Amino acid sequence: MSKKVGIIGLGAMGSGAARRLVEKGFDVAVFDVRAEQIEALSACAPASSPADLAAKSDIILAFLPYSHQVEKVALGANGVIEGARPGSIFVNMSTSAPSTTQRIAEVLGEKQIAVVGAPMNGGPHLALSGELALVVGGEDDAVETCRPVLSCLGEIRHVGGVGAGEVVKIINNLLLAICTTANAEALVLGVKAGIDPDKLVDAIVHGVGSNHAMRKQYQQHVLKGDFGENDLFSVDFMRKDLALALDLGKELKVPLMYGAMADQMYQATQAKGRSANYHPVVVTLLEELVGVEVRSKNK
């Protein structure tokens, strides 16, 4: 089992993963364009570029927000392609376009560098505790080689070849957006009709309309008015992932009507200046429109 792991991108998720892997006994090299992020991980070996990091690593994990950033660190100047050895593996942990990971796999494959996509479900605290849900796409041999590393970060579901993990993650987030906006509509209706918000949410959680977004986001955050700008999944990131879903639907000629409506609600939330807030803040659009709040009386 390889003990040399490199991590590119030291935001909340990448930093959490680095700490987790060090705790599990891996030799971890790290790179980020922000020097202070590298310095904060004193137990890790610093790298001066993605190429330098790749030269020190057998398995390279990229934790980056956008598809173009992943492609740049993999294939650009001073990128992974310039430092990685034949037999090493590049793992895209980001929620990005399936075509990005497939294109990277095609180019790196010419140098005998395998590529795996392993986008994550879960927040930074789950990266630290090793409880992420990873949807993985890649060739069987490459996935098995990565398994000792990835299994330290969470539960693995191998869903197909290169790009399949990104497709499944995009679909997950499409459903999350649709559920979150539908929940907003339903709860505002109930509160406007005079139902106590706590009792309304509790009844739905224990009824046929229950869903993850209702149990986690609404019960734990919306009722408390907790839409803070922190490490939670923001409106901007939700719109980024909805764009990936809508683009995939357009490419495959699959109409995504509910997804398009959810995207419009999030776009309107951005227009209200709430781009950086936790994404269930979308409920405030309807609250302000009809003059009620879905808030606990005990918050």
Rank of each mutant, 00 (worst) to 15 (best):
S2F: 01
A12L: 04
A12N: 09
A12S: 05
S15A: 10
G16T: 02
A18G: 10
R19E: 05
L21G: 00
K24N: 08
G25S: 01
F26E: 00
V28L: 10
V30G: 00
E36C: 01
Q37Y: 12
Q37W: 09
Q37S: 11
E39W: 06
E39I: 01
S42G: 01
A43R: 01
C44V: 02
P46N: 13
A47V: 05
A47G: 05
D52K: 08
L53W: 15
A55E: 15
A55S: 15
K56M: 12
D58W: 02
I59W: 11
S67E: 13
K72A: 13
K72G: 00
A74K: 12
L75E: 11
A77E: 10
G87M: 14
V91I: 12
A97C: 05
P98G: 04
S99A: 11
R103L: 06
I104M: 04
L108G: 01
G109C: 02
E110V: 05
I113F: 08
V115E: 11
V116W: 08
A118G: 02
P119Y: 06
A133N: 12
A133C: 09
A142H: 13
E144V: 08
C146I: 07
R147F: 13
S151P: 00
C152N: 10
E155K: 06
I156D: 02
I156R: 08
R157N: 08
E166T: 03
V168D: 13
I171S: 02
N172R: 00
N172A: 07
L175M: 12
L176E: 13
I178S: 07
C179S: 13
C179G: 07
T180H: 09
T181K: 08
E185Q: 12
E185M: 07
V188P: 03
D196F: 13
K199Y: 15
V201P: 12
D202P: 00
A203P: 05
N211M: 12
M214H: 10
Q219E: 15
H221Y: 15
L223E: 08
K224M: 00
F227E: 08
F227T: 03
F227Q: 05
G228I: 10
L232A: 10
L232P: 01
V235D: 14
R239C: 06
D241P: 05
L242A: 04
A243K: 11
L246I: 07
D247E: 15
L248E: 14
K253W: 11
G259L: 04
G259W: 14
A260Q: 06
A260M: 05
M265S: 11
M265K: 12
Q270F: 02
G273Q: 02
A276P: 04
Y278H: 14
V281S: 10
E287H: 08
V292M: 09
E293G: 05
S296M: 04
K297C: 00
